[in-house]
Simulated scan of single mutants.
Amino acid sequence: MIGPTAPRVRRITRPDVILRGEEVGAGPTFLLLHAGGERRQVWGPVSEVLVDAGYRCVAFDQRGHGDSEGSARTLSACAEDVAAMVHTEPPASVVVGASLGGLAAIAALADPAVRARVAGLVLVDVVPCLEPSRVRRFLASVGPLGAHTELVEDTLAQAPRLRQVTAELDLPLLLVHGGNGSSLTDEDIDQLLHLAPHTTVRPIRGAGHLIARDQPVALAQAVIATTAAWR
């Protein structure tokens, strides 16, 4: 028998790709969206803390990543995948998106039908206020863009729309950002607070851009502490 803490295989068939993932735990749901170039397994240590606290975690490989099919070339395709994920989950799920995952979540939440099924959004070291030259420099500093160049440029082009959607969101928002080596500046955070003044901001010491890797326990604890009242 598979217990509540044993991973269970998930699969979503989209018109052009199959998305593969897993779920673990039982209770209120967190949908975990990884960063570009990552895989769903990055959430493993975070999920352990969340499951121990009585939550259920669902994580898919985004298209063109890990075990999922296809290629990630446009933000809208990733956002449509996120929408499909949300519609397979119970109402009042909390979406947690790191970097690309956070931006795809914002784009997906432009749809009222998606928003209606979500209790709140956690952005992990990402904001919709994207300054193209600085984003390109940062991404180049952490590794070659390679196959993701087209997706990066398309996402940067969507920045005005992402800001508009964020400003119109009536959902609770949490920004968790790294304290060391983060991709964000104080100005970025101020711009997010200008768009969505109700955002809660939590820094994580000892973490860079990939907080799920650097400080998974602190990330999970910050998410639990802030989102408990959202559902």
Rank of each mutant, 00 (worst) to 15 (best):
residue 3 G to L: 06
residue 3 G to K: 00
residue 5 T to A: 07
residue 6 A to G: 00
residue 8 R to T: 09
residue 8 R to P: 00
residue 9 V to A: 00
residue 10 R to C: 11
residue 10 R to S: 08
residue 11 R to P: 01
residue 12 I to K: 07
residue 19 L to I: 07
residue 19 L to C: 11
residue 21 G to P: 03
residue 22 E to W: 03
residue 26 A to W: 09
residue 27 G to Q: 12
residue 28 P to A: 15
residue 29 T to N: 06
residue 34 H to R: 00
residue 35 A to D: 11
residue 40 R to H: 03
residue 42 V to M: 11
residue 43 W to A: 03
residue 45 P to T: 05
residue 48 E to V: 05
residue 49 V to S: 12
residue 56 R to H: 13
residue 61 D to S: 05
residue 63 R to D: 06
residue 64 G to E: 07
residue 65 H to S: 09
residue 65 H to P: 00
residue 66 G to N: 13
residue 66 G to S: 01
residue 68 S to C: 00
residue 73 R to T: 08
residue 74 T to E: 10
residue 79 A to Y: 02
residue 82 V to L: 09
residue 84 A to Q: 10
residue 84 A to R: 08
residue 85 M to T: 00
residue 85 M to D: 09
residue 86 V to F: 14
residue 87 H to V: 11
residue 87 H to I: 07
residue 88 T to V: 12
residue 92 A to S: 15
residue 93 S to L: 15
residue 96 V to R: 01
residue 98 A to W: 01
residue 100 L to Q: 08
residue 102 G to N: 12
residue 104 A to N: 07
residue 104 A to T: 12
residue 107 A to K: 13
residue 109 L to I: 02
residue 111 D to G: 06
residue 112 P to Y: 10
residue 113 A to N: 05
residue 117 R to T: 05
residue 118 V to R: 07
residue 118 V to A: 05
residue 120 G to W: 13
residue 122 V to T: 04
residue 123 L to E: 12
residue 124 V to N: 03
residue 127 V to I: 07
residue 130 L to M: 15
residue 131 E to C: 06
residue 132 P to W: 15
residue 136 R to G: 01
residue 136 R to S: 08
residue 140 A to T: 13
residue 140 A to R: 09
residue 140 A to D: 15
residue 141 S to T: 15
residue 142 V to D: 08
residue 146 G to H: 03
residue 150 E to H: 01
residue 150 E to D: 04
residue 152 V to I: 08
residue 153 E to A: 02
residue 155 T to E: 03
residue 160 P to K: 13
residue 161 R to G: 02
residue 165 V to P: 03
residue 167 A to G: 15
residue 170 D to R: 04
residue 171 L to G: 07
residue 175 L to G: 03
residue 177 H to A: 01
residue 177 H to S: 01
residue 178 G to E: 03
residue 178 G to H: 04
residue 178 G to L: 07
residue 179 G to R: 04
residue 181 G to T: 06
residue 182 S to T: 10
residue 183 S to W: 02
residue 187 E to H: 05
residue 188 D to C: 05
residue 188 D to M: 05
residue 190 D to H: 00
residue 191 Q to F: 01
residue 193 L to S: 07
residue 194 H to T: 10
residue 194 H to W: 13
residue 194 H to E: 09
residue 196 A to F: 14
residue 197 P to I: 12
residue 198 H to G: 11
residue 199 T to E: 15
residue 200 T to K: 09
residue 201 V to W: 11
residue 203 P to V: 02
residue 204 I to G: 00
residue 205 R to H: 12
residue 208 G to A: 04
residue 208 G to R: 06
residue 209 H to M: 10
residue 209 H to T: 04
residue 211 I to N: 03
residue 214 D to G: 02
residue 219 L to Y: 01
residue 227 T to H: 10
residue 229 A to Q: 14
residue 231 R to F: 11
